[in-house]
Design a protein around this nucleic acid. Structure first.
Lengths: 349, 349
DNA sequence: AATATGCGGGAAATCGATTTCTGACTTTTC
DNA sequence: GAAAAGTCAGAAATCGATTTCCCGCATATT
């Protein structure tokens, strides 16, 4: 319950307003506005005087006033699952960069898989009048979004549709990267490959798993040579998966994981058991988080570019704004691709 | 250069304004404002009618209008060094949580040690009229901040003073945690302890190093038994430090690092050389990033609580707002403490 | 040459709140 | 019981932009 002193209002620095600029340039405020927004044309010599006055006074338009009259806050929302998964901070930064290029600010909220946190954050988004929200949570809990939908706020999601008029789904091409991963393993000579999946209600995990199954079939593996384990996308989930696969007889010579954190868990178990990676066991992750480079050995993984994802999300919002009715509302695709590091090699190398 | 359709303005959902609320409650807008802000007293039965109208219409005050007239944007800035260091996302979330409790939004920018990025971000902060900025960069480049200082925006920094009227320094008590770390090692029997420092122009690293030197002196180590290496706070810096210390004869039996990323680099070198941690080499980090739990072995490290730091930063801004002239402008301290995991043991255990 | 058209720029309305001013009414005070 | 003081709520000013409306002047049209 902080309260400011009333003086704080006028204590601000240079803060020139549009009227002062207009006076200095010898024009009306309307003309200054026309110049800064470049909508309507203004005579050369007047525009020049206006720019000069702006320069001299260090004027920047008050965004609150601007937002008030235009009805556009120039603020976007970004919803992520958990800040401790390094994938998200990187995505966050990319999204802020794209948004910033277009003069938007971003409100960021991480749900931490906590319903109440999400609710509170979404309430804040609505109150701040955001112009659009990128829901980057890989989770199907669209009832989270009901309040946003009710307010008719444009919504971009991953994999799973928000089922609302002003919304749009980004389609991540998991198959592409996972195909590369499986073929990479096949080329190295692996004939028994485990897949450590994330939790199944997530549509994204279903997609990743299906892509894996299709790939192994394509290289001619029998079903029992491509065992699955369903974990929970965390480090611990990875350790459980590793223990499960090691318990099989014969056990797989390679493990593909549904995300990097699980892969790191797998690496840990191997290290504890004295099983050398990649000589005795190959491991592949998914996401290419920063950490993937720093574990031992550096992780071969499927990269989903955060820049691409962030740009795609922004582009999606743009499409929703222009509301292109007949428009090119084609799906927006995000590519994935394999990054080979040192956690994969031929079995028994 | 996105442009919206003009329709987007009225396309918004329920959006009731204060006049509609006033009408419905049969009072004037001024009274509604008085009720929502609770400044002045309003007769019981009127207030009740107002709240009911607010409820029924789903009214939330337009923050832009509110900001415009009050001169307060209710937005704060948070400047961090690099988003890929997991310490910062966690700090970020904590700061957003504290800010959110007080109805502030947070604009986040990471410099990535890039002057131009920082400049652009700070420009955005000024343009958005933030009411205060937390500079959590551990870096002494205060000329970054000149624009903020010129605008007289309240500033909270870590370790290094911004040298401005409306600013305040958080003092992290490095000595406390590092003392614990060194004494922990001494108790385990280590008599030769290396310190891998971060780059020296950073005041924070100077502080950490000094704390280390004081601690080892206190447990009675000679100078040559507490060798230093100056790296750069990254994974690679850690690998360099490790190689340096291993090259000494005799080499230290324990390495204390100025941050966790360096410690992870040290662990990597040990793993590659087949030197077992903690049996043959003890390693201690600093920060307690999320990752510290997941490396092999889990890292003993000095924890600086992000919650504490975030709360301290917010509290600092609060102090600057109230501008307590004679006030309790005492330093705001942030504690550190040792978290013992599995990367430390007796030498030769 | 007379009228129609276009265009640039100023005056004023507007966005949605907060806050100051003011007047009606109630409560205290001597 | 009359004057002074205190409450409470409405009317109106205000914040700082954008945008609509309109007028005057220059150019195009017949």
């Amino acid at each position: 319950m902080a309260t400011h002193t009333p003086e704080s209002r006028k204590a601000r620095g240079s803060g020139a307003d549009i009227i002062q600029v207009a006076r200095r340039a010898g024009v009306s405020p309307a003309t200054v506005s026309r110049v800064t927004n470049g909508r309507s044309t203004v005579a050369r010599h007047l525009a020049k005087r206006v720019w000069q006055a702006i320069e001299e006074l260090g004027y920047t338009p008050n965004p609150q006033a601007r937002a008030l009259v235009s009805g556009r806050s120039r603020v976007l929302g970004l919803l992520i699952s958990e800040i401790t998964n390094p994938f998200f901070p990187e995505l966050m930064q990319s999204f802020e960069d794209v948004a910033g290029e277009h003069d938007f600010e971003v409100m960021i909220g991480s749900t931490n898989y906590n319903r109440e946190r999400a609710r509170i954050f979404i309430r804040r988004l609505v109150q701040r009048r955001v112009e659009g929200v990128a829901v980057m949570t890989f989770r199907a809990e669209s009832h989270f979004l009901d309040e946003l939908i009710a307010e008719n706020i444009p919504l971009v999601t991953i994999d799973v549709s928000a089922n609302a008029a002003r919304s749009l789904v980004l389609e991540v091409d998991y198959a592409q990267g996972i195909d590369e991963a499986v073929q990479h393993l096949a080329r190295l000579g692996h004939r028994r490959i485990g897949f450590a999946s994330g939790p199944m209600p997530h549509l994204t995990n279903l997609r990743r798993k299906d892509a894996f199954l299709r790939s192994v079939k394509q290289i001619g593996l029998a079903e029992q040579d491509a065992p699955l384990f369903v974990g929970d996308h965390t480090f611990e989930g990875g350790t459980q998966a590793a223990l499960h696969f090691l318990g099989l007889d014969p056990h797989p010579t390679a493990i593909v994981c549904s995300n990097d954190m699980m892969a790191v868990g797998v690496l840990r178990v191997m290290a504890e058991r004295g099983i050398r990676v990649p000589q005795e066991m190959s491991v592949i992750g998914f996401d290419d988080i920063h950490l993937a480079e720093f574990v031992n050995p550096p992780l071969t993984t499927v990269r989903m570019s955060r820049q691409d994802l962030a740009r795609a999300a922004y582009k999606g919002l743009e499409q929703l704004w222009t509301e292109n009715p007949a428009g090119t509302r084609g799906p927006i695709r995000v590519a994935t691709s394999l990054v080979v590091r040192q956690s994969t090699d031929s079995p028994g190398a």
